[in-house]
Design a protein around this nucleic acid. Structure first.
Lengths: 104, 104
DNA sequence: TTGAAGGTATGATCAATTGCGGACCTAGAT
DNA sequence: ATCTAGGTCCGCAATTGATCATACCTTCAA
């Protein structure tokens, strides 16, 4: 069962959902950017500079979160995004490397 | 440039298109089934037994074809489907193995 | 206590995806 | 000549996806 914020466990991550999440260029760019930074780097949703409104931003990060690609935790004021790199690697080895290789 | 039937060259295959094509369960099952058979196996679209109409079948195979995952060639009477296994492996190493691992 | 920064929720809109039936095409079999 | 199998193409309907504006919530800082 996913937690209250919709984070699935590693075993619960579904391939179709992950593929669909990564199929969108905006969402893939978020993952690619996180891959390019040190493990565990925390970012705000807004810090990725996606050219969409705040509410659309929320939508995209929800898709990524519910697919299991990112984690979002409350840090008082803001809500920080981290890549679930180890989890994704465990469930779908090689997939994130593909995203990294594809990055522009 | 893709050929007249919409088959992209290896270098032209786009990650987003491939991910979107594989995100659909029907289409992923086609790829999984082809992966489970000898290299170069030729199949008709209908032989996969997808629970959709003929016209919907055409649509799904077009998505797979234009993403670069399958090849469709005229064989007189029918039109045969083959997996572009080597091409996909060259462009996105490890991706097809993921589909295989996920198959039920 | 007021304001600002960061997010969420809701409801609407518009585009893309998925689906269908039906008309049609081509090649092989009858 | 006609039939059939396998597919395509063309509308069209239904669903899902992406987007926005607006209103709202929470926490920190002034």
């Amino acid at each position: 069962m996913p937690d209250a914020d919709g984070h699935p466990e590693v075993e619960e991550m579904r391939f179709g959902d992950v593929l669909a999440a990564l199929a969108d260029p905006h969402r893939r760019s978020v993952v690619a950017e996180l891959l390019d930074q040190p493990e565990g780097t925390e970012r705000t949703c807004a810090s990725f500079g996606l050219p969409v409104s705040k509410s659309t931003l929320t939508y995209h990060f929800r898709v990524l979160r519910e697919a299991g690609l990112i984690r979002q935790v409350n840090r008082g004021n803001s809500r920080k995004v981290t890549l679930r790199g180890a989890d994704v690697d465990q469930r779908f080895p090689g997939l994130l490397q593909m995203v990294r290789d594809e990055a522009p």
